[in-house]
Nucleic acid binder design. Structure first.
Lengths: 215, 215
DNA sequence: GAATTAATTGAACGTTCGTTTTATTAATGC
DNA sequence: GCATTAATAAAACGAACGTTCAATTAATTC
């Protein structure tokens, strides 16, 4: 056999991407073979090389597009000229929504970085850093205007991102909690963590929780 | 050649474990070959099979002992009969100290779970769940005695663990922050996140940060 | 409807993998 | 110092890997 009836390059490529994301998320990049991937798509292994020149090219494409999507999503969701609390809330909501929606792709982007060449790793990390920088800027603004009370901006940003991204590890759609409930809880935890001053009305008291137990 | 002068089974096995942890952490379990590992130890690949019957046995041994170590460390550090704030502080301090000290092993235990057989995966997850259960118990006690203000105990526990374990992703010893500084910051963030009542002296006010921005 | 292009198959390539087997030498026990 | 046991090397096994190549057929173009 050769070309099959109804075959379409565009559709096949999309099917390859989709199957690759879920297969890599489940088995890991190294453990997934090109033959396995091809079988999932319903095609011979050789056919994959029409769309991606190497296995690593495939991985890199998935990661790059994931990061581009994340940055684009934030560009769209980001409120312009708002106060730090509003901006932080938008960041948290966007982050959680995006990551829950793309659990598998996030898994791939976070876990398989070591399989990239140095150059490509740098590219992906650059995008990631740009995204994290947005959060640090919000935290810094909030700290400077006393909207937040933060020890260390960089450390707090990393802690928040790890906490939020961690959702994909345990969250399963359709279980005990809805996406809205999870998002609301994380938003509330985030605001407490950064010591956010209550924004609407009530003034915030001076005594900070945690002070008494700090080393 | 055969047996080499000065060779010692105990030392070789220890060297294999050590090399395996750092090699798997750096390359990933699937990407590390037994020949690579043997070369790192300064031995032929066949010699490894004297100590570990298969590659997966080696991985499982590393993971099981890591988890056993974590549980044992907590058993030792756990304060008995103390209030929730003290117990939570001890949990955070133990968790961060243990994970910073064993960054590579933690990486292995968290990232390579999918390479275990179903049965062994279950064993490791059982230990992990037992460890997480300790945190949930502390949070529940704190919530019931109004020492903490928590939306959802399970969700908060997961968020905290993800946040704390995330330290190993970005923390490098000898850089900007010391272990003590990092621990103090995480402790402070944790206490705010759970809405801990200030324990020594000052009463805690009613208005909670985050309320105003919750969905 | 012939020529061209797009999509895929099937077979093969050289390499590397985890693992096993057999032989060989160092340390140990008596 | 001889017998035994411990620790390793060296070579080989079949299987699986990523990738390439030539052949073949479906769709498209004119």
């Amino acid at each position: 056999m050769a070309r099959t009836t109804g075959s379409d390059g565009g559709k096949t490529e999309a099917a390859v991407r989709e199957a690759a994301v879920s297969l890599i998320a489940r088995l890991g990049y190294e453990a997934m073979s090109m033959r396995q991937l091809a079988a999932e798509v319903g095609v011979q292994a050789a056919a994959l090389y029409r769309y991606f020149p190497t296995k690593e090219d495939l991985l890199f494409t998935l990661m790059r597009e994931h990061m581009e999507g994340l940055l684009k999503a934030w560009e769209t969701a980001r409120p312009t000229g708002a106060d730090p609390v509003t901006r932080l809330a938008a960041y948290v909501e966007n982050h959680i929504a995006f990551h829950i929606e793309r659990r598998h792709a996030t898994h791939v982007s976070n876990m398989e970085l070591r399989s990239l060449s140095h150059e490509r790793l740098t590219q992906v990390l650059k995008m990631r850093t740009a995204y994290e920088k947005e959060l640090r800027a919000i935290l810094r603004d909030g700290a400077e205007t006393d909207a937040f009370e933060i020890d260390d901006t960089g450390l707090t940003a990393m802690a928040l991102i790890q906490m939020m991204t961690g959702v994909i590890v345990w969250f399963r759609p359709g279980e005990r909690l809805s996406i809205a409930e999870v998002t609301a809880s994380y938003l509330s935890m985030t605001m407490r963590l950064v010591g956010a001053t209550i924004s609407h009305g009530t003034a915030r008291p001076s005594g900070r929780a945690g002070d008494a137990v700090a080393l």
